[in-house]
Amino acid sequence: MKAAPFAYVRPTRLQDAVTELGSAQHGGGKVIAGGQSLVPVLAMRLGRPSTLVDITRVEELTHMTVDDQCLRVAAAVRQRRVQREASQLVPLLGLALPWVGHREIRSRGTVCGSLAHADPSAEMPAVAMSLNATVEVTGPNGRRQVSAADFFTGAMATVTEPTEIVTSVSFPIASSDEGYGFAEIARRHGDYAIAGVAARVRSTSGAVVEAPITSFGVSDKPQLRDMSGALQRAVDSLGDPAAPTSEITNALEEPAHAMAEDVVTTAGDSHGSTAYRKRLVRVLAARELARAYRSSLKGA
Protein backbone atom coordinates (compact mmCIF):
# COMPACT_ATOMS: atom_id res chain seq x y z
CA MET A 1 0.00 0.00 0.00
CA LYS A 2 2.57 2.55 -1.07
CA ALA A 3 1.65 5.25 -3.55
CA ALA A 4 3.49 5.41 -6.84
CA PRO A 5 5.90 8.35 -7.04
CA PHE A 6 4.47 11.74 -7.86
CA ALA A 7 5.80 15.29 -7.94
CA TYR A 8 4.53 17.75 -5.36
CA VAL A 9 3.96 21.47 -5.66
CA ARG A 10 2.65 23.77 -2.96
CA PRO A 11 1.76 27.19 -4.31
CA THR A 12 0.63 30.01 -2.04
CA ARG A 13 -1.52 31.85 -4.59
CA LEU A 14 -4.65 30.50 -6.21
CA GLN A 15 -3.56 31.75 -9.61
CA ASP A 16 -0.34 29.71 -9.28
CA ALA A 17 -2.28 26.62 -8.23
CA VAL A 18 -4.40 26.87 -11.38
CA THR A 19 -1.27 27.34 -13.49
CA GLU A 20 0.44 24.35 -11.86
CA LEU A 21 -2.58 22.17 -12.45
CA GLY A 22 -2.71 23.25 -16.08
CA SER A 23 0.97 22.61 -16.72
CA ALA A 24 1.22 19.25 -14.97
CA GLN A 25 2.67 16.58 -17.24
CA HIS A 26 0.19 14.93 -19.60
CA GLY A 27 -2.72 16.47 -17.72
CA GLY A 28 -1.81 14.23 -14.77
CA GLY A 29 -2.19 16.92 -12.14
CA LYS A 30 -4.47 16.39 -9.18
CA VAL A 31 -5.47 18.75 -6.41
CA ILE A 32 -4.83 17.69 -2.83
CA ALA A 33 -6.18 19.43 0.26
CA GLY A 34 -7.06 17.06 3.12
CA GLY A 35 -6.29 14.02 0.99
CA GLN A 36 -8.67 11.76 2.90
CA SER A 37 -10.23 10.39 -0.27
CA LEU A 38 -7.26 10.90 -2.56
CA VAL A 39 -4.51 9.27 -0.48
CA PRO A 40 -6.31 5.88 -0.29
CA VAL A 41 -6.73 6.06 -4.07
CA LEU A 42 -3.01 6.70 -4.39
CA ALA A 43 -2.13 4.00 -1.86
CA MET A 44 -4.12 1.41 -3.78
CA ARG A 45 -2.67 2.79 -7.01
CA LEU A 46 -6.11 3.22 -8.43
CA GLY A 47 -4.89 6.62 -9.49
CA ARG A 48 -1.36 7.61 -10.46
CA PRO A 49 -1.25 11.38 -10.91
CA SER A 50 2.10 12.77 -12.04
CA THR A 51 1.81 15.85 -9.84
CA LEU A 52 -0.11 16.75 -6.70
CA VAL A 53 -0.98 20.40 -6.29
CA ASP A 54 -1.37 21.10 -2.58
CA ILE A 55 -3.79 23.98 -2.08
CA THR A 56 -3.76 24.06 1.72
CA ARG A 57 -1.26 26.93 1.87
CA VAL A 58 -3.25 29.16 -0.48
CA GLU A 59 -4.35 31.75 2.05
CA GLU A 60 -7.69 32.64 0.50
CA LEU A 61 -8.72 28.99 0.50
CA THR A 62 -8.35 28.65 4.27
CA HIS A 63 -11.29 30.90 5.18
CA MET A 64 -14.80 30.24 6.30
CA THR A 65 -16.93 33.37 5.98
CA VAL A 66 -20.51 34.29 6.73
CA ASP A 67 -22.67 36.99 5.18
CA ASP A 68 -26.43 37.65 5.44
CA GLN A 69 -27.38 34.75 3.26
CA CYS A 70 -24.57 32.27 3.05
CA LEU A 71 -21.89 30.33 4.83
CA ARG A 72 -18.97 30.16 2.43
CA VAL A 73 -16.56 27.31 3.07
CA ALA A 74 -13.32 27.59 1.10
CA ALA A 75 -11.49 24.59 -0.29
CA ALA A 76 -8.90 24.06 2.45
CA VAL A 77 -11.36 24.28 5.36
CA ARG A 78 -11.51 20.98 7.20
CA GLN A 79 -14.74 19.18 8.02
CA ARG A 80 -14.10 19.11 11.74
CA ARG A 81 -13.74 22.88 11.82
CA VAL A 82 -17.02 23.32 9.95
CA GLN A 83 -18.68 20.90 12.35
CA ARG A 84 -17.41 22.91 15.34
CA GLU A 85 -18.03 26.38 14.05
CA ALA A 86 -20.95 26.23 11.64
CA SER A 87 -23.32 23.53 12.89
CA GLN A 88 -25.69 26.22 14.24
CA LEU A 89 -25.68 28.35 11.11
CA VAL A 90 -26.35 25.46 8.77
CA PRO A 91 -28.02 22.78 10.93
CA LEU A 92 -28.19 20.18 8.17
CA LEU A 93 -24.39 20.31 7.98
CA GLY A 94 -24.37 19.86 11.75
CA LEU A 95 -26.58 16.77 11.43
CA ALA A 96 -24.62 15.25 8.55
CA LEU A 97 -20.99 15.95 9.41
CA PRO A 98 -20.82 13.47 12.31
CA TRP A 99 -21.52 10.79 9.68
CA VAL A 100 -18.74 11.86 7.33
CA GLY A 101 -16.00 9.28 7.80
CA HIS A 102 -14.63 8.97 11.30
CA ARG A 103 -13.56 11.79 13.61
CA GLU A 104 -9.97 11.11 12.58
CA ILE A 105 -10.91 11.57 8.91
CA ARG A 106 -12.85 14.79 9.51
CA SER A 107 -9.84 16.29 11.27
CA ARG A 108 -8.14 16.49 7.89
CA GLY A 109 -10.82 16.04 5.23
CA THR A 110 -12.39 19.09 3.63
CA VAL A 111 -16.01 19.80 2.69
CA CYS A 112 -15.02 20.93 -0.79
CA GLY A 113 -12.84 17.86 -1.23
CA SER A 114 -15.81 15.67 -0.44
CA LEU A 115 -17.83 17.46 -3.14
CA ALA A 116 -14.98 17.32 -5.67
CA HIS A 117 -14.46 13.60 -5.04
CA ALA A 118 -18.20 13.02 -5.56
CA ASP A 119 -18.49 9.55 -4.14
CA PRO A 120 -22.10 8.46 -4.70
CA SER A 121 -22.31 7.25 -1.08
CA ALA A 122 -20.92 10.44 0.44
CA GLU A 123 -22.91 12.73 2.71
CA MET A 124 -21.69 16.19 1.68
CA PRO A 125 -22.93 16.04 -1.93
CA ALA A 126 -26.43 15.10 -0.70
CA VAL A 127 -26.45 17.90 1.85
CA ALA A 128 -25.27 20.39 -0.78
CA MET A 129 -28.13 19.32 -3.05
CA SER A 130 -30.84 19.50 -0.41
CA LEU A 131 -29.62 22.93 0.66
CA ASN A 132 -29.33 24.15 -2.92
CA ALA A 133 -25.72 25.09 -2.28
CA THR A 134 -23.51 26.80 -4.85
CA VAL A 135 -20.12 25.41 -5.76
CA GLU A 136 -17.45 27.80 -6.97
CA VAL A 137 -14.97 26.43 -9.48
CA THR A 138 -11.83 28.27 -10.58
CA GLY A 139 -9.85 27.51 -13.70
CA PRO A 140 -7.68 29.14 -16.36
CA ASN A 141 -10.72 31.08 -17.58
CA GLY A 142 -11.63 32.43 -14.17
CA ARG A 143 -14.32 31.57 -11.66
CA ARG A 144 -17.75 30.11 -12.25
CA GLN A 145 -20.63 29.27 -9.94
CA VAL A 146 -22.44 25.97 -10.31
CA SER A 147 -25.54 24.97 -8.39
CA ALA A 148 -25.15 21.69 -6.51
CA ALA A 149 -27.97 20.15 -8.56
CA ASP A 150 -25.89 20.65 -11.72
CA PHE A 151 -22.51 19.91 -10.19
CA PHE A 152 -22.58 16.11 -9.96
CA THR A 153 -22.60 14.25 -13.25
CA GLY A 154 -22.05 10.64 -12.22
CA ALA A 155 -20.04 8.34 -9.98
CA MET A 156 -17.00 10.35 -8.88
CA ALA A 157 -17.65 12.74 -11.72
CA THR A 158 -18.48 16.43 -11.63
CA VAL A 159 -18.60 19.33 -14.07
CA THR A 160 -15.13 20.36 -12.88
CA GLU A 161 -12.59 20.27 -15.71
CA PRO A 162 -9.18 18.63 -15.04
CA THR A 163 -7.62 22.10 -15.04
CA GLU A 164 -10.16 23.53 -12.60
CA ILE A 165 -10.18 23.63 -8.81
CA VAL A 166 -13.24 23.58 -6.57
CA THR A 167 -12.48 26.71 -4.58
CA SER A 168 -15.49 27.07 -2.28
CA VAL A 169 -19.04 26.04 -1.54
CA SER A 170 -21.74 28.37 -0.25
CA PHE A 171 -24.58 27.02 1.87
CA PRO A 172 -27.63 29.19 2.50
CA ILE A 173 -27.95 30.09 6.17
CA ALA A 174 -30.89 28.41 7.84
CA SER A 175 -34.11 30.35 8.16
CA SER A 176 -36.36 29.89 11.17
CA ASP A 177 -39.17 28.28 9.14
CA GLU A 178 -36.94 25.40 8.06
CA GLY A 179 -36.45 21.99 9.58
CA TYR A 180 -34.02 19.21 8.75
CA GLY A 181 -33.63 15.48 8.86
CA PHE A 182 -30.61 13.31 8.16
CA ALA A 183 -30.05 9.58 8.51
CA GLU A 184 -27.96 6.85 6.99
CA ILE A 185 -27.24 3.19 7.49
CA ALA A 186 -23.67 1.92 7.30
CA ARG A 187 -21.93 -1.26 8.38
CA ARG A 188 -20.12 0.68 11.05
CA HIS A 189 -20.50 4.31 12.03
CA GLY A 190 -18.21 6.34 9.82
CA ASP A 191 -18.05 3.99 6.86
CA TYR A 192 -19.61 4.89 3.54
CA ALA A 193 -23.37 4.68 3.70
CA ILE A 194 -25.25 1.74 2.26
CA ALA A 195 -28.04 4.28 1.86
CA GLY A 196 -29.00 7.57 3.43
CA VAL A 197 -31.15 10.67 3.06
CA ALA A 198 -30.79 14.40 3.71
CA ALA A 199 -34.08 16.29 4.00
CA ARG A 200 -35.03 19.94 4.31
CA VAL A 201 -38.58 21.21 4.81
CA ARG A 202 -39.78 24.81 4.83
CA SER A 203 -43.28 25.50 6.02
CA THR A 204 -45.48 28.52 6.72
CA SER A 205 -48.20 28.09 9.35
CA GLY A 206 -48.13 24.36 8.82
CA ALA A 207 -48.28 24.60 5.01
CA VAL A 208 -45.37 22.94 3.23
CA VAL A 209 -43.45 25.43 1.08
CA GLU A 210 -40.43 23.36 0.14
CA ALA A 211 -39.47 19.73 0.83
CA PRO A 212 -36.34 18.65 -1.06
CA ILE A 213 -34.87 15.32 -0.04
CA THR A 214 -31.67 13.81 -1.43
CA SER A 215 -30.94 10.09 -1.30
CA PHE A 216 -27.35 8.85 -1.50
CA GLY A 217 -25.64 5.50 -1.85
CA VAL A 218 -28.43 4.45 -4.17
CA SER A 219 -27.35 5.53 -7.61
CA ASP A 220 -24.34 6.88 -9.50
CA LYS A 221 -24.95 10.30 -7.97
CA PRO A 222 -27.11 11.79 -5.22
CA GLN A 223 -30.78 11.86 -6.14
CA LEU A 224 -32.74 15.00 -5.31
CA ARG A 225 -36.56 14.84 -5.25
CA ASP A 226 -39.20 17.39 -4.39
CA MET A 227 -41.56 15.84 -1.84
CA SER A 228 -43.53 19.00 -0.97
CA GLY A 229 -46.75 17.76 -2.58
CA ALA A 230 -46.56 14.34 -0.95
CA LEU A 231 -45.72 15.81 2.44
CA GLN A 232 -48.58 18.31 2.23
CA ARG A 233 -51.03 15.52 1.38
CA ALA A 234 -49.73 13.40 4.25
CA VAL A 235 -50.18 16.26 6.72
CA ASP A 236 -53.63 17.05 5.31
CA SER A 237 -54.71 13.44 5.62
CA LEU A 238 -54.01 13.60 9.34
CA GLY A 239 -56.00 16.83 9.66
CA ASP A 240 -53.56 18.09 12.26
CA PRO A 241 -50.33 19.96 11.42
CA ALA A 242 -49.10 19.20 14.92
CA ALA A 243 -49.49 15.44 14.54
CA PRO A 244 -46.61 13.46 16.06
CA THR A 245 -43.64 12.52 13.90
CA SER A 246 -44.54 8.83 13.95
CA GLU A 247 -48.00 9.50 12.47
CA ILE A 248 -46.61 11.71 9.74
CA THR A 249 -44.01 9.02 9.04
CA ASN A 250 -46.74 6.41 8.62
CA ALA A 251 -48.74 8.72 6.38
CA LEU A 252 -45.68 9.16 4.16
CA GLU A 253 -45.13 5.46 3.62
CA GLU A 254 -46.65 5.25 0.18
CA PRO A 255 -45.00 8.30 -1.40
CA ALA A 256 -41.69 7.32 0.22
CA HIS A 257 -42.05 3.85 -1.30
CA ALA A 258 -42.68 5.38 -4.73
CA MET A 259 -39.68 7.66 -4.33
CA ALA A 260 -37.43 4.75 -3.31
CA GLU A 261 -38.52 2.78 -6.39
CA ASP A 262 -37.57 5.81 -8.47
CA VAL A 263 -34.21 6.77 -6.97
CA VAL A 264 -32.58 3.43 -6.17
CA THR A 265 -30.89 2.31 -9.36
CA THR A 266 -27.74 0.70 -8.03
CA ALA A 267 -27.30 -2.98 -8.85
CA GLY A 268 -26.53 -3.82 -5.25
CA ASP A 269 -23.34 -5.13 -3.73
CA SER A 270 -22.10 -7.31 -0.88
CA HIS A 271 -23.34 -4.77 1.64
CA GLY A 272 -26.90 -4.65 0.41
CA SER A 273 -29.09 -5.63 -2.51
CA THR A 274 -31.14 -3.20 -4.55
CA ALA A 275 -34.26 -4.28 -2.68
CA TYR A 276 -32.61 -3.71 0.68
CA ARG A 277 -31.51 -0.22 -0.35
CA LYS A 278 -35.03 0.57 -1.55
CA ARG A 279 -36.38 -0.48 1.79
CA LEU A 280 -33.81 1.66 3.63
CA VAL A 281 -34.63 4.71 1.53
CA ARG A 282 -38.37 4.19 2.03
CA VAL A 283 -38.07 3.99 5.81
CA LEU A 284 -35.45 6.72 6.21
CA ALA A 285 -37.11 9.15 3.78
CA ALA A 286 -40.53 8.95 5.46
CA ARG A 287 -39.05 9.35 8.91
CA GLU A 288 -36.64 12.18 8.11
CA LEU A 289 -39.20 14.14 6.08
CA ALA A 290 -41.61 13.89 9.02
CA ARG A 291 -38.89 14.95 11.42
CA ALA A 292 -37.86 17.86 9.19
CA TYR A 293 -41.46 18.98 8.88
CA ARG A 294 -41.99 18.84 12.64
CA SER A 295 -38.86 20.86 13.35
CA SER A 296 -39.84 23.43 10.70
CA LEU A 297 -42.97 24.16 12.76
CA LYS A 298 -41.00 24.88 15.91
CA GLY A 299 -39.14 27.85 14.50
CA ALA A 300 -42.18 29.53 12.96
Binding site: M1, Y8, I32, G35, Q36, V39, P40, A43, M44, L52, R80, H102, R103, E104, I105, S107, R108
Partner: peptide, 22 residues
Amino acid sequence: HGVCGMCTVIVDGDAARACLLL
Protein backbone atom coordinates in the same frame (compact mmCIF):
# COMPACT_ATOMS: atom_id res chain seq x y z
CA HIS B 1 -5.57 3.15 3.39
CA GLY B 2 -7.47 4.74 6.20
CA VAL B 3 -9.79 1.98 7.35
CA CYS B 4 -8.32 0.38 10.46
CA GLY B 5 -7.13 3.34 12.56
CA MET B 6 -3.96 1.66 13.90
CA CYS B 7 -1.86 4.66 12.88
CA THR B 8 -3.95 7.30 14.67
CA VAL B 9 -1.88 10.23 15.93
CA ILE B 10 -2.69 13.79 16.98
CA VAL B 11 -1.92 16.43 14.36
CA ASP B 12 -2.37 20.08 15.32
CA GLY B 13 -4.66 19.13 18.17
CA ASP B 14 -6.95 16.68 16.37
CA ALA B 15 -6.64 12.95 15.84
CA ALA B 16 -5.80 11.90 12.31
CA ARG B 17 -4.80 8.77 10.45
CA ALA B 18 -1.06 9.00 9.84
CA CYS B 19 -1.31 6.70 6.80
CA LEU B 20 -3.60 9.21 5.07
CA LEU B 21 -1.29 12.17 5.50
CA LEU B 22 1.63 12.96 3.27
